[in-house]
Design a protein around this nucleic acid. Structure first.
Lengths: 237, 237
DNA sequence: GATTGGTCTATTGTCTACAGAAGACAACTC
DNA sequence: GAGTTGTCTTCTGTAGACAATAGACCAATC
């Protein structure tokens, strides 16, 4: 039996920081002070700083030299970028991964979905979030394209950061199970094996309700993003 | 006039390391020992480690906990991933960015192209590399999609890492100017304003000669990558 | 009263030092 | 002679401390 190496403080700090970001404990725009975090996490500054570099690369925090780090505050243009890129990556992944070629990849989806259900029924909000991320990643992973999956994961985390803004509104218990049911349906369509059907299901799947009234909540409107938002809303109607 | 903040040691170390990687001074598979680099770069370990985290996120080096860091060694499957993802991102960028809407974005392309020419005629090999990267990035940047550009840039650097393997073969002076001419032609097509024409030019542009005999130089053949390589070669013939 | 100058504190940037793990090598045992 | 064990060296992981900078606050002057 192979024992696994104990996680480094950098890993632990990265995960802890990410949880603080995705749970909304750290809000977009908040200043991230190193010394405060070292005390809260019980880690010294060097590993914490490395963890922050990782999250900076992921686009979750933004560093200003000699000024400090801030939780990334997303503009409407950012959201436009996230949603459009996400869709394109999804598209590519489905075309490569459906119908499924390797059973092991599919079992990863099922495993994530099962854990998702467990967390949902237990009302474990944070667990559902993590497993939903893992489920989507595993779906992208059906393509066998690691870089695609990583790019998708990064984009997905940024999207969660942005949805955290109005998370409170959706935090009701039933949406946890509802999410799971949508994911289960998606996986069924995937197993059916038609890429086009999966595209359709994904288009329906994307929860765009968080875009309602988003212009008022965020700044940074660009011509591209405004045009996009208009198109999205027309498409819905 | 706004003065810019002096670069941090992390930034400098990141850039220096990247140059060592892309110039081939550090070869894929090479061990990266922290203490050696601190001496060579004149930086202490914490900032160097932060820089290494950044490059790890970019996929240029690979860290094994408690074992050390290594320059990423690419498999055939990795190359398959890089080339296919790159193409898809390019595609998306062209569809969004052509015809060009903002003059300022186009001028960035021209600026990079001019610097490219200067370096090429001076025989500045490293400069050509940097400006070629910047030119391609600026072309992707025509889309006004920062995340797309960043994803592309990361992929592009990995591709350069892999081309570094047989760089010596192409290091003749004429290819420097040749690269520039290809880029100039591409920019002309872009300015003409037809996305389809740009797609065509890009398909012709991609220098696939580095794939010649690549199966023998790298390991890690996957079903996907072998099928892809076959398709690419058939497409050429 | 407003503005400029200085000081002071909080925070970041960097370095040095130590603890612990991994791998190499030698000596010892069978 | 082959295998195993113990030790030693090298390197990474982490901590703590110091230097330098940014921003706030207060005082003094015009």
């Amino acid at each position: 039996m192979r024992i696994e190496a104990p996680p480094s403080m950098v890993q632990l700090a990265t995960e802890a920081l990410m949880r603080m970001l995705l749970s909304g404990r750290l809000q977009p725009g908040d200043r991230v002070v190193e010394n405060q975090l070292t005390q809260q996490l019980g880690v010294s500054r060097p590993p914490l700083r490395e963890a922050m570099r990782v999250l900076e690369q992921q686009g979750l925090i933004t560093q200003q030299p000699r000024k400090g780090a801030f939780v990334t505050r997303l503009t409407l243009h950012d959201i436009y970028e996230i949603v459009t890129l996400r869709r394109e990556l999804e598209r590519m992944a489905v075309d490569l991964g459906v119908p499924v070629r390797e059973e092991s990849r599919l079992s990863r989806c099922h495993a994530a979905l099962d854990r998702h259900e467990t967390c949902a029924r237990a009302g474990d909000w944070m667990g559902v979030l993590e497993q939903a991320v893992e489920f989507h990643s595993s779906v992208i992973g059906l393509s066998g394209h690691r870089r695609l999956e990583e790019a998708y994961r990064s984009i997905q985390l940024q999207m969660l950061l942005c949805m955290g803004m109005n998370r409170q509104a959706r935090a009701s218990g039933e949406s946890l199970v509802g999410d799971w049911e949508r994911h289960r349906r998606l996986l069924e369509v995937i197993e059916a094996g038609s890429p086009e059907a999966v595209h359709l299901e994904l288009a329906r799947h994307g929860d765009m309700t968080f875009l309602d009234g988003i212009e008022d909540r965020v700044g940074g409107h660009s011509p591209e993003s405004l045009a996009w938002l208009r198109r999205v809303r027309e498409g819905e109607a």
